[in-house]
Amino acid sequence: MNRLAVYCGSATPAEPRYIELAREVGRTLAERGIGVVYGGGRLGLMGAIAAGALEAGGEVIGVIPHALANSEVANHDCTELRTVSGMHERKQAFTDLSDGFVTIPGGVGTMDELWEAVSWAQLGYHTKPVGLLNAFGFYDHLIAFNRHMAEVGFVRPAHQGIIIDADTLPDLLDKMAAYQPHTPIFQMQASEL
């Protein structure tokens, strides 16, 4: 994996461990020679991801919509800052520029990015690993909900392994490196759906 899209919050939670985690994720990726593709912001976890990677000499590509770039939240310290017309173009750029996706703690926007990466994998728009860093147990309920969707029958057996989760970044990166793409819906027969 040469580059990973990192999905995370632009907020700064009261607990400093989230900012510290983001900075460590950026630093670790850079130290492993993995470039970071992210939302292009300088605030919150986004800014910490970029700072950690840049401080460690890593490549950081920010992708930010015009509306946010113009509101003075854009991070001009990135190796490259791409400005796009909107959120759809932003997420497409994340997919085009990366070899996989890592989601760390975040809010609604982070969930939107994660679920779109999962949905696109399920359909067959990409065959890249979708990682979920469950630091501090932040995503315990989300992992349980995903399992519940599968148990009820809303996630096909072939797609139950799309979300790769781990509690630590090294474990997550190892699992992502071993990921074997599943059969996407676009390649399935009607009887399999």
Rank of each mutant, 00 (worst) to 15 (best):
G52Q: 09
P65W: 11
A56N: 09
L43C: 13
V37M: 05
L43R: 14
L54G: 00
M46L: 12
I34Y: 07
L45Q: 13
A67W: 12
A50C: 10
I49D: 09
I61C: 07
V60L: 06
G52A: 08
I49G: 03
G57Y: 09
G41A: 15
G35T: 01
A56T: 09
A56V: 06
I34M: 12
G33K: 10
G35A: 12
G41H: 01
A53I: 14
G40V: 01
A69S: 11
G39T: 01
A51D: 15
G39H: 02
E59R: 05
A48H: 09
G47T: 13
I61L: 04
E55M: 10
R42W: 02
R42Q: 15
A51V: 00
G35E: 13
E55N: 05
G39K: 07
L68A: 09
H66I: 05
I61Y: 05
G58T: 14
A51E: 15
A48C: 13
G52C: 08
A50Q: 06
G52P: 01
G44K: 13
L54R: 14
P65V: 01
L68Y: 15
A50T: 10
G57L: 11
I64P: 00
V63T: 04
R42F: 03
G35Q: 07
L68Q: 08
G47S: 14
I34D: 08
A48D: 13
G33R: 06
G33A: 13
G52Y: 01
G35W: 12
G35Y: 11
A69F: 04
E59W: 04
L54E: 06
I61G: 04
E55G: 07
R42N: 15
V37N: 08
V60P: 14
M46A: 11
E59D: 13
L45R: 05
G52M: 09
V37C: 04
H66P: 00
E55Q: 15
P65F: 02
N70H: 14
G57R: 09
A48L: 11
I49P: 05
L45W: 06
Y38H: 11
R42C: 10
G58C: 12
G41M: 06
G62C: 09
R42Y: 02
A67K: 10
G35M: 07
G33S: 10
G58L: 11
V36Y: 08
H66A: 11
E59G: 00
G39S: 04
A48K: 09
Y38D: 02
V60K: 11
G52F: 05
L54Y: 03
A69W: 01
V36R: 08
V36A: 09
A51F: 00
I64L: 13
G47I: 03
G47A: 10
I49M: 04
I49S: 01
E59Y: 13
G33L: 04
V36D: 05
N70F: 00
G41C: 03
G44R: 06
A50R: 07
G44E: 06
G40C: 08
L68C: 12
G35R: 02
L45Y: 01
L68T: 14
L54K: 13
A56P: 06
H66L: 10
L68D: 02
A69N: 05
